[in-house]
Write a protein that binds this DNA or RNA. Structure first.
Length: 138
DNA sequence: GCCAACGTTGGC
DNA sequence: GCCAACGTTGGC
């Protein structure tokens, strides 16, 4: 069973729309150990929520890991890793952070509990529920 | 190895 | 623009 994840990006830096346009992108530049450990745990094919931080503060799409972790090409330090992701599905009705915060079901989610973590884990239950809230049947 | 100071992220 | 949360750094 695949694990589910969430990655954050400021839309001014790199948006979901840009990912769709690019077709795929290398997720580089993570310089936090907890986030790095999550990157390392990702497997090819894992679904990844794409969250817009600062502007929007909502989950706008689902990406997929198409290449598992490798040394981050933007760093000389082999401790840092990157993955490659591709867009999978847009979320018809983006799910906002405030919506998630209002629902105790999501109280344990990395996104809610640890606001600054840029790469977080999502449980299968949380994943399905967010998909449904976003207007996806899967 | 503790902890104060400082820097950064990101919600509001 | 403010500030809370948290990570990192460096003095001791």
């Amino acid at each position: 069973m695949a694990s589910c994840w969430l990655i954050k990006s400021e839309p001014d830096e790199y948006s979901w729309q840009q990912l769709v346009k690019d077709g795929e992108t290398q997720w580089t530049g993570v310089r936090n150990y907890a986030a790095r450990n999550n990157l390392r745990s990702m497997a090819t094919g894992d679904p990844v929520f794409f969250y817009h931080s600062v502007k929007g503060t909502e989950i706008v799409g689902i990406a997929k890991v198409i290449k598992a972790h490798y040394p981050d090409p933007t760093s000389d330090n082999p401790a840092w890793v990157a993955v490659t992701v591709a867009p999978f599905k847009a979320i018809p009705q983006p799910v906002t952070l405030s919506t998630l915060k209002q629902d105790p079901f999501f109280a344990d989610m990395d996104l809610v509990r640890q606001g600054r973590l840029s790469v977080g884990k999502v449980s299968a239950k949380e994943f399905r529920r967010i998909c449904r809230m976003g207007g996806l049947t899967t």
